[in-house]
Design a binder for these strands. Structure first.
Lengths: 123, 123
DNA sequence: CGGAATCCTAAGAGATACTG
DNA sequence: CAGTATCTCTTAGGATTCCG
């Protein structure tokens, strides 16, 4: 795969990454990649998220076109969230990212210990 | 490339991503991938960053083992930041990410306009 | 069920001034 | 040069309550 070696990280790109890689978005996208989900279904799948944050995350993802919100007018209403075609294209970048964290987590943890140790010794 | 389809996004992975993909880290890593840089060199390369945020970013990256800090004891002191071998392995994931934003930015912007328009019409 | 509205706090960002 | 220290201020986020 040839990737650009000299990519500009300007404000728009930075903002987009912030909105798609933020605290809860990855978890939401991951779940929606497997299957469409109801609101409370997502809440249960991501136990630590608050209702407020989940709502905000879903709105943001919807606004950016990677998630779709479908209201089923039963009563009480059912709301179904699903990934869009655009959202599916995020799968690869996200997987590459998570593969990196999985693979290098041990090295990172060693680095942290070393750093903290040196820091402690310095005092 | 085979990437894991079912990766858990637990707290440690989330935290690591937060520390490496945060607001200024990508820009710093990008610059350090090209060449080692002095502190003020980085400041100039990333005009909007404040000294405080740049310091914090560099410390965080150093602690996670992706950036190295070398103090040259001249006077006044010179400090040289360089990417580590571990840091170099971030190049690919980051490039994939930036390739995604570059490629899909137009679609995202269209989605945003549609969303905002619908939002305005709803009121 | 799927939120919206409100209140609150804690972390981060900016600005400014100072230092080895 | 490369920071640290301090202060203020804004904002993201949690907890809680209420609603169609």
């Amino acid at each position: 795969m040839d990737t650009a070696a000299e990519v500009r990280i300007d404000a728009p790109h930075r903002e987009l990454l912030d909105q798609i890689l933020d605290k809860w978005s990855l978890a939401v996208l991951n779940d929606l990649c497997e299957r469409p989900c109801r609101f409370n279904e997502l809440r249960r799948a991501i136990p630590q998220v608050t209702q407020k944050s989940l709502t905000a995350t879903l709105r943001r993802l919807e606004r950016n076109g990677v998630v779709e919100r479908e209201v089923v007018s039963t009563r009480p209403v059912a709301v179904r969230y699903r990934i869009t075609d655009l959202g599916k294209t995020l799968r690869h970048p996200v997987d590459v990212l998570l593969a990196w964290t999985s693979q290098h987590m041990p090295a990172v943890e060693r680095a942290r210990e070393d750093f903290d140790e040196r820091e402690a010794a310095r005092l």
